[in-house]
Amino acid sequence: MSAESRLAELNIELPPAPKPVGLYRPIVVSGGMAYLSGHGPLKTDKTLIKGRLGLDMDVEAGFEAARVTGLGMLSTLKGELGSLDKVKRLVKLLGLVRCTDGFVDQPAVINGCSELFRDVFGDEAGVAARSALGTNGLPGGIAVEIEAIFEVEA
């Protein structure tokens, strides 16, 4: 089943692709690879999910923030490629979680994005090498920031 078909089957409607908030490109495609800049959890009402895991957010809220971030990343990919069916596979995912010093569940938070990509692209193409790191600060106080590398049709 194609990624576009899976979106429909899962009743996922992608939000508009987020606009850059600095001097960078949200995506660069080169040599059959798509490099997505860090995306944050931008909701459909254009507000950001802000907070610090272990302080004012729990793992469930962080998971949702990562999922929302993944939806924005899919929008960026689709906007650039024209179709998510041009994605061959997710290669690498890097997730940053704004959290307290003692918070240790960064992987469970970033699973919100990882599970979304697995559901859309399948068990083989949608699961990649991954890092999930904690940090004390992210732009604008957002809860997560995620970047990715995809192999795409050239």
Rank of each mutant, 00 (worst) to 15 (best):
F150L: 15
A65D: 12
T69Y: 04
G32T: 13
A143I: 02
L94S: 14
V97F: 03
I146C: 06
G134D: 00
K43T: 12
R6V: 01
A66V: 12
V109H: 00
A129D: 15
E124K: 13
T100Y: 00
D85E: 09
S2T: 15
R52T: 15
P18I: 08
P18T: 12
V29M: 06
L74M: 13
L55V: 11
G40H: 04
E60K: 15
G38I: 01
L81W: 06
E115A: 12
K78R: 15
S131L: 13
G72P: 04
A128G: 11
L71I: 06
I49T: 11
R52H: 00
L90H: 07
E124Q: 11
N111L: 12
R130T: 14
D119N: 11
R52A: 10
R130N: 06
I149W: 06
L77E: 12
S2Q: 09
V127P: 02
L7T: 02
G22K: 04
L48C: 01
G72R: 07
V68A: 05
G134N: 01
L77G: 05
N11A: 09
P41Y: 08
P20T: 07
V68H: 01
V59F: 03
F117P: 08
A34C: 09
G137L: 04
V28D: 14
G137V: 08
N11P: 00
A143C: 06
K86N: 09
P15K: 07
F117S: 10
G140N: 09
V29N: 04
V28W: 01
V29W: 03
F150S: 05
L48T: 07
T44A: 13
V97K: 09
L48I: 04
N111R: 14
K92V: 13
